[in-house]
Design a protein around this nucleic acid. Structure first.
Lengths: 237, 237
DNA sequence: TCAATATATTTTCTCGAGATTTTAATTTAG
DNA sequence: CTAAATTAAAATCTCGAGAAAATATATTGA
């Protein structure tokens, strides 16, 4: 047996297969909403969607309820479901709340993290760096991979925090911000600043410098806000 | 028309009638879980519950999914639903995360709140004080009312915060902590300290003193943690 | 007696059809 | 021609029955 197998899963981590049809439909729907296939504000008619996702009406209904949990879908009394709308104000709110939670979680992580956590951070950073290299070589097909590894890097950073609630809320907010980032990425490719910021966070983490790590992370997150501000308001529908 | 009618609803506020059977069942189930009728860890069999709550199987299923949103119920793959377990560690986490979010929201509220917000805070405090007076007179039947007004007071305090996400997460955490508080209240009745703390928060808010208000609120919330620590561990099952 | 396999029961999960409610279209009155 | 009211269409919500899975029980062999 390899030692690395004892560590929490980072690399080949599919967050365990969906064990129910409802959950499978939930994941596909979530992906389609985040990617903008179902635009913000669109009405989600059960009858039209059940055949496309190849499940029964009640099953699709459950999937929609799960999406309400993530606030990607809003349920309106007796008037069905709708993709959650987006706005600049909302994204500002998401970003600031995310800073609040993620810096706190990172602080706890640095204070509580053991060697294995450091190793995971280094590993996740490495995976992310490789994806960035591929992207710089012009292979746009790896963008999906970069997204995933970026998310993993941020998750691993706070994974040593004992606060399950901070992590839970952070996950929700990350999904939300991912929606906005998809929109901004079309006009603003991943800059080298992003990579150097990730590097700086890694360095601060390994130096166990809470102050530096949190302030860099804050700047890093707020930068995304600036990117979204560049989007013409008509795209936000 | 009375001026007070223009203000957001405080007094006679039922959070708008449930418009669907699923939501009605959801609310009753939520109440029963918080009150401990369904103890932590209990298996929630759909077949047994559908007749008690007088709804169909699919409908009750939806209600359970909604409860997963509030993390009061956990869904386990293909093995049904279960009341979320409780633990002292979990409550510590809940409390600390709540402090983080609620102090931030209160700070924003004080900075952004207008006259109408102040009026709402004063009104909610008054409602709460009256309920406390009734309780001191020995009428235990008003405990339910006090719970509701205490929640309303805390909600109104942060209602002027522009951060919908902070308020959303705070609502979830409040429901969670209410579960634990129900357990502690049996052996520790509402002390006069609680009332004086509410008074102190009100004073600080009216003085627009962010520093004082947030520190008192922090102490206030952490005090509940101490109360729960007094519970024998066997009650936590 | 214990372990492993096989059977039986229970429970969850899924589907399609019917009842209510909402939304859109049409008609009618002013 | 506008606005309210009536009618028609669509969609949501709800229910009960059947299929798949998991748990519990019983049986068999060592």
């Amino acid at each position: 047996m390899n030692d690395i197998a004892a560590l929490p899963d980072i690399a080949g981590s599919q967050p365990d297969e969906p064990k129910t049809l409802a959950e499978a439909a939930y994941r596909r729907l979530r992906r389609d909403i985040i990617e903008g296939i179902h635009p913000p504000g669109e009405k989600l008619r059960v009858e039209h969607l059940k055949d496309h996702y190849a499940v029964g009406a009640g099953t699709l209904r459950e999937a929609l309820q799960l999406l309400v949990t993530d606030a990607l879908v809003v349920a309106q009394g007796q008037r069905g479901f709708r993709v959650a709308p987006i706005s600049l104000d909302d994204f500002e709110d998401i970003t600031r709340t995310r800073v609040l939670l993620e810096t706190e979680a990172l602080k706890q992580s640095i204070e509580c993290g053991e060697d294995a956590w450091e190793a995971n951070v280094v590993a996740a950073f490495h995976m992310l760096s490789r994806a960035e290299t591929k992207l710089e070589e012009g292979n746009e097909g790896n963008r999906e991979e970069w997204e995933l590894r970026n998310q993993t890097f941020h998750e691993v950073l706070i994974s040593a925090s004992p606060s399950r609630w901070c992590r839970h809320f952070q996950n929700i907010l990350y999904l939300q911000s991912e929606r906005y980032r998809r929109l901004s990425l079309f006009r603003q490719p991943i800059s080298r600043d992003v990579h150097s910021e990730h590097q700086a966070i890694l360095d601060a983490v390994l130096a166990r410098d809470v102050e530096a790590a949190t302030s860099i992370l804050t700047e890093h997150i707020l930068r995304t806000l600036e990117a979204v501000r560049q989007i013409p308001s008509d795209v936000l529908s």
